[in-house]
Structure formats: C-alpha cells, structure tokens
Design a protein around this nucleic acid. Structure first.
Lengths: 339, 339
DNA sequence: TTGTAAGCGTTATCAC
DNA sequence: GTGATAACGCTTACAA
C-alpha cells in the first residue's frame, strides 16, 4: 500500500490540495466544515505527511547530526541520551556517527551530514583533531555547529564544556590536602584540549601547594585503550617510582586499569597508593575499592548543547544574527574508598 | 552561501541540468568532453548533491531508524556501534530513538520514523510490549522491520537473537555441576520474551539435573532499576533463604547489585553464595570478585540485524519477494571468581 | 473561503 | 549526445 498523500485526500473530498494542506495545518482561512471533513478523512485514510517533501519545500530537515568519538563509552552514551531527549522535545530527530578518534573519519562523517542537509551539527572532536578546516568550512556555509566536551579552542562556534582545568585542580588539591605528597598523573593524548587542561590543572594544583612538578611522574595514555594503558602504566610506575603515593588519572577507565594492576599485585589502595578517576562512570561505584572521581554531567552536556544548537538553527533560519555561547557546566568531586 | 545545485553547474557551463545530472552519475550517453567539464566544474564549485531532493525523487531516504529501550546500557551501545558501522558501510545513516521501556513511547517513536520515511526499522521491544499492533501495521505497509534481542515471538518479521533459554540453561548447569545445590534466580519483568526464556532455561536446568524447582527462590526484578533490584532482593533472599548457595541473575547489573549487598554484609562470594550474571558488561571483569557471566554478542547482533534489514530494503524496493530470517547468535560462558 | 500555479533539487522518459 | 518536460509531495504567494 502506497502512502496516502494530500492529493488522495483532496480527490476523495473533491477539493484542492491547497485547502487540504491548509486545513491540516490549522490555517484560519479554511471553512469550519471543510476543515472538519479534511481532518476526518485524513484520519480515516491514515494520512501521515511525507516529511521528505516537506523538507525539500521548507529547506529544513528537522534533523541534527551528531559526531562523537565512540558511542561505547558511558560518558558519550549519557551525552547521547541528553541529545536525543532534548532534540525530540523540539521535534528534531538525531543521526549519530562515530569518528573512532580518527580525523579522517571525522571529516568523512561531517561530509555525510552536510550532504544529508541536517539543520545543525553537534560534535565532540577526535583525539587527532588539532586543525579545524573541515569544521570552519561548514561554519562559513552557515551550518550551525555546537562543540561539546572535546572542543577546539580556536573554532568560532558555541561550546558546552566543563572546566577541565579546575576540575583537575580540585581533584589534585583534594589529594594534597588529604596528605598525599608525591602524586603522579596518568594523562591522555597530547592534542585534545581536555587532556591538556586536566594536565595543567594537575600541575597548577601541585605548584600552588608548594609541591615541585616532576615531569617523570606524568605517564602518557594514548593508545585508545584506556584500561590497558592504565594497567601497564601502573606497572611501569611501580617499578620507576616507589615513593609515589597517589595517582590522578585522566579517566575512570584508566583508573580502573590501575586498580586492577594494584589489586593483582597486593598493592593496597589507598594505603600504598591512592587513585583518583575522572568522569564517574557507573562502574566506579562498584569496583573495589570504590573509586573517587570527578562528576562530569554527560546528560546535561548533551541536553544543553542541543538546546543551544536548535536555538541557533532557528535564528539562522530567520536570518537573525546571534553570538556564540560558551557554557561551562559545573563539576564536583565524589570521594570514595580509593583516596 | 547557498548550496550549489545542478542548475548552477548547468548555467555555468551553458548546458542542461539533465546533462549535468547524467555526467555526474556516470551515464554512458554523455560526451567525454562535457563529462569532464561537468566533473571539473562540480569540484570547483564544491557541489554536494541535495539528498533531500534525491530522496523525494527516488522515494528512498537511505536512512534507517532504530528504537531501543535505552542507550545508556552497555549492551545497547554495543548494538548501536554494530548498527552504525554496518549501515554506514552500505551508505545508510541511522536515526536513534529510545522507548525508555514504555509501550507508549515505542508507539510514538515508531510513528516518528514512519513520518520521516526511513527505509527500514530496527527495534528491540520495551518491557511493556506484549501486543504488537503498532508493529504489524507498519509491516503491512511494507516497511521492513528487523527485531533484535527483545523480540515478539508472534511478530512476522526477521529477528536476530540469542538463545536465551539455552544460554541460561548452560549457566545454571555450570553452577550445578560445580556443586551448587540450592540456586535462586533473580528474574526480569514478566512480559519480555528473553526474561521468560532465561527463566525457563533456569528451570529446565534444575529439573534436568534432578533438582526440584522451588518458585520461592525466584525473585522479580522489574523496577527498571536493575542495580537496586539486585541489591534489595539480595537482602530479602538472605533473610528468607539461608540455604541458598548460588544466584543466577538476569543481568550483570542485577548481579553487581547483589555483589554490592554481599560485600557490604561480609557474605563471601562464592564461598557463601555464588553469583552468575548475564551480558558480560565491561565492569563485570573489574568488580570484586570478578563476575561470571554469559557473553552476549551485542556488536554482532546490531551488525547482523542491519545487514538483514538493508537486504530486505533492497528486495522490497525491487519488489522481489523474500522470506523472513531468524538468526540465533551463539553465546558462551565466561567463568570468573564469583562462581 | 477556496483554488491556481510556481517552486524546492533531483531523476527519468522521451524526443530531437 | 543532449535537452525539454514531467514528476516526486508539499507549501505559499497570489488570484478568484
């Protein structure tokens, strides 16, 4: 059975397509009785508007595209939850694509979304993204884009982030105030802004508390395999620095990798070494020992980014100029047994 | 800057839109030199085809819709990963919607996807879905639909599942063979087929091994809050049945809730009570004790379901009749420290 | 209050 | 080998 069109209804009622369209969309200049008849017939025939035709006509797809590094990360699935919910509230549908932390894929996905004529794009950059031509080009073409979490400082568009630097600062300060003196940092890749910021927060906290920064205590986790990065670097650290008494990890998954190595090797947490994570994944509350972490509001980040994006889409559509927003969402620390 | 259209290229070259379209799409009946010129100009002007117009013309959107209960579940994000990857391989984009385990939402989302004119739909049913009119209606309208994981046995369409009953059977048999004698089951809601099947597998394993089935050992977890369901029912079980020596849980999250209660109350796992989970989430390998579980291939399930769906979309489009498939993906047990 | 006609950007048919 | 022309289903000036 082919889908019912306006024409079918018009024919059935012996009126024009225009009138049917108007009646269905609640125009005032349609006779009460015709309106009623149209509504009834539409229901009877089980009419559903052809969105594609509407899209072509109105030059809007009521669809937004999302590019994230990977959906199989609790943080990002929380974000997606926020995005999908908020979008739906405004009548938008969401197309999801993954970059797998590759710039090349990110470019390709962006291109796909452009072709698809989505009304706007939400994205969190890949670890490889440290130049932004592909994004700037779309921006110049008036495509509303909102960056979240992993952003490019130099990109001129709205952003929704947390203050990674101060979140890290707070976590490390907490460790110091708790009495830990020799604190290592398991950092992320070198390019991403949030990886840099967390590192800077770590460093600043040390210095502000009169602890000398020692670069040999910074371990790099950049194999896109957080858990094993944590595990193997923990092993390395134990061999290289017996005096370390705490670790601030870039991610909960890294931290859990550390926990695993320590547990296997009878290194007591937090007595021998304390561990602090970042993101507060669900599992952090159930591992042993439970993991102290930075609470990062994924759902709200997705929600807010979507809200801003849809606002910009509407303004863009009405040719009303607007200025970019930078929202910094609050974070907090959750202290558990690992520190 | 407005997007470039075929017309723009045609004008620039002083030829017809038709010829441009043909040249771009590799038709044979187009002069070599014109073809070359068109390709060059298209590139120069940075032309990208307007998918919406193509969609309207070809009556295909190259888009598939997905409805899952909740994206914030590791199993489903694995599935999504598989879906998105496979779809992209075939040039399809994916729109994701959540039912939040509510039939009402499921219906609404299905309706949205229908309006959006997606080419096909992938879905995993909500816990409340035990009648299928909304799905059957679409099926009658020739919309290809593939159900996965949480299916309706009575729905006539292709399905990709695991054999929940035998997976549960294997898990419980393992427990019995390991020497556990009084085995409880923390089951899921009453309606979902996989919840029923896991229960039946549990029951059958008991009976086949000469253990009497005792319905008072079956605890219901249906608050859509697996972790706390596991936690509170564990408490209840300890009070009601001191002799239970193992629990087979419907889900890893339920199992982790159990673990938590036992750990807090100094009940030794597996010495006092063993715990077996289902799904093998990442966290199961890092909790204490590590959790034995049933390995459920989420990524592959999403991938396979998508493959079948796209096949059916193509056949449907060519009006070639096809028969529905039922794919049963293999599962396995991963034995860890909790049993 | 209702209808005509144009147009959104493409593709497909058919004539030249 | 090339190009009018119609059509996909809808919205919207504008006319009646």
């Amino acid at each position: 059975m082919e889908p019912i069109t306006l024409k079918d209804i018009a024919n059935a009622l012996n009126i024009s397509v225009t009138t049917v369209s108007k009646a269905l969309r609640g125009y005032i200049d349609v006779g009460a009785s015709t309106k009623k008849a149209v509504l009834k017939m539409a229901k009877e025939m089980n009419y559903t508007p052809n969105t594609v035709a509407v899209n072509l006509r109105t030059q809007q797809t009521k669809t937004i595209g999302v590019i994230i590094p990977s959906i199989v990360h609790q943080f990002f699935s929380n974000v997606m939850d926020g995005i999908i919910n908020e979008a739906e509230k405004h009548g938008y549908l969401v197309i999801t694509l993954q970059s797998n932390e590759k710039l090349e894929f990110e470019k390709k996905q962006l291109h796909l979304l452009q072709q698809k004529r989505v009304d706007g794009i939400l994205m969190s950059l890949s670890n490889e993204t440290y130049q932004f031509d592909h994004i700037n080009e779309l921006l110049q073409n008036k495509m509303p884009i909102v960056l979240f979490d992993k952003i490019g400082k130099l990109v001129k568009c709205s952003k929704v982030i947390i203050d990674d630097q101060s979140a890290a600062y707070n976590a490390v300060s907490y460790l110091i105030e708790k009495g830990y003196k020799r604190i290592a940092h398991f950092r992320g890749s070198l390019q991403p802004q949030n990886s840099i910021d967390r590192f800077l927060g770590y460093k600043k906290a040390l210095i502000d508390h009169g602890i000398k920064f020692d670069s040999s205590l910074v371990y790099l986790c950049d194999n896109n395999d957080d858990f094993n990065d944590g595990y193997t670097n923990a092993k390395k650290l134990v061999n290289e620095h017996q005096d370390v008494d705490a670790i601030f990890a870039i991610t909960d998954v890294v931290a859990v990798g550390i926990l695993k190595y320590f547990n296997e090797n009878n290194i007591k947490i937090p007595e021998d070494i304390a561990v602090f994570g970042f993101s507060d994944w669900f599992m952090s509350s159930v591992v042993t020992p439970t993991l102290s972490s930075v609470v990062q509001p994924g759902f709200e980040m997705g929600r807010k980014a979507t809200e801003i994006l849809i606002e910009e889409i509407k303004l863009e559509h009405k040719k009303i100029p607007y200025s970019f927003q930078k929202i910094v969402l609050p974070t907090s620390l959750v202290i558990r047994k690992s520190t």
